Amino acid sequence: MDERGLAPDGTIAREGALDRVPAAFAPVVAAARARITETFACGRLHSAYLYGSIPRGTAIPGRSDFDALLALHEEPTEADRADARKIEVALDRAFAQIDGAGVALSSVRALLSDLERHDGGFFVACLCTPLLGEDLARELPRYRPTSLLARETNGDLGLLLPRWRARAAEAGTDGERKALGRSAGRIVRTGFTLVMPRWGGWTSDLDESTELFGHYYPERLGHMRMAALTGRTPTPEPAVLGTLLDELGPWLAAEYTAVHGAKTPRP
C-alpha cells in the first residue's frame, strides 16, 4: 500500500488486517469470534468481518468502539437483529477498552448485488477485515477512487440530514446528543469522498480526510475540523450540532450532488 492507500496496480488496497489489531483489543476480537460463531450457528452465517479503527491498528483503549459486519446466507430477520444486539451488549459490558459495540447485518445476496457493488461491496472488499468464513471480496472487483465510487458510497447525505435534525430536536439528554455527534464522522467521510477522485486515493483517517478536504475547500476547513473533532469526541453542545447539521451539512450535500450526482435510490 502506498501513501495514498493504493495497491501497486492503482486500485484501493484493503486497509485492515487481523495482525494489526492492537494487543489491548485482541481479547475483544476473540470473544466476538466465539459469540458470533455460537449465536449464528446452524448455517445462518456466511462470513463475518471487522472494520474501523481496531483492524486498522489505530484504536485507543477506552475511546474506540468495536464494529463488525455479518453476512448472512438469507436476508436478516428481526430474530437475527435481536441476536446481534445481544452480542453488542455482551461485548460492551465485558470489555472496558471499547466504548460501545456495533454488529451490522446484511445478506450475501445484497452485498454482491449490482445495486451494492460500489457501496456495500466496496465496503466489504476494501474497508472490512475477514474474521470468519469465506471472504466475499474474492467475488468483488478491485476498486479505484472514481466519481462513481464517491457517488454510491456517500451521495445520500441530503437524505440523512433531515433524520439527524429530527433526532437533534427530540434529544432530551446529553447522552442522546453525544450519540448523534458520532454522525459527524459521516460528514467528514463525505467531505473526503467529495475530493477523493481529485486526490486519487483512499483514507479512513478522520484527520487526514479533513486536511485533504481543506486543500480543495479551504473556506470550509474550520467547520470540517469541528466535525472531525466531534466525530472522535462527541459533544452534547447544541451549537456544535447546529453548525454541522444546519450549515456544513446542507452545503456539503448540495456540493456533492453538483459534483458527483445523487446516490442510486434504494428500495
Rank of each mutant, 00 (worst) to 15 (best):
residue 2 D to V: 00
residue 9 D to T: 07
residue 11 T to C: 12
residue 16 G to V: 06
residue 21 V to F: 02
residue 22 P to C: 09
residue 22 P to L: 03
residue 23 A to F: 06
residue 30 A to G: 11
residue 31 A to Y: 00
residue 32 A to K: 02
residue 38 E to T: 12
residue 39 T to F: 03
residue 39 T to Y: 01
residue 41 A to M: 00
residue 47 S to I: 08
residue 48 A to V: 06
residue 51 Y to S: 11
residue 51 Y to V: 04
residue 51 Y to C: 07
residue 54 I to Q: 11
residue 54 I to F: 08
residue 54 I to L: 07
residue 65 D to Q: 07
residue 67 D to H: 12
residue 76 P to S: 02
residue 80 D to A: 11
residue 80 D to P: 03
residue 80 D to W: 07
residue 84 A to T: 00
residue 85 R to K: 13
residue 86 K to Q: 15
residue 91 L to Y: 02
residue 98 I to S: 02
residue 101 A to L: 09
residue 104 A to T: 08
residue 115 L to Y: 12
residue 121 G to K: 00
residue 123 F to E: 10
residue 124 V to R: 09
residue 127 L to A: 14
residue 137 A to P: 06
residue 137 A to Y: 10
residue 146 T to K: 01
residue 148 L to W: 02
residue 149 L to Y: 03
residue 153 T to I: 04
residue 154 N to S: 14
residue 157 L to S: 00
residue 162 P to S: 14
residue 165 R to Q: 15
residue 173 T to I: 05
residue 179 A to F: 04
residue 179 A to L: 13
residue 184 A to F: 02
residue 186 R to F: 09
residue 188 V to N: 06
residue 189 R to F: 01
residue 205 D to F: 09
residue 206 L to G: 00
residue 212 L to R: 15
residue 213 F to P: 13
residue 219 E to N: 08
residue 220 R to K: 15
residue 221 L to W: 04
residue 225 R to K: 14
residue 225 R to Y: 01
residue 236 P to A: 08
residue 241 L to H: 15
residue 244 L to E: 07
residue 247 E to C: 06
residue 253 A to E: 12
residue 256 Y to A: 02
residue 256 Y to W: 08
residue 265 P to L: 14
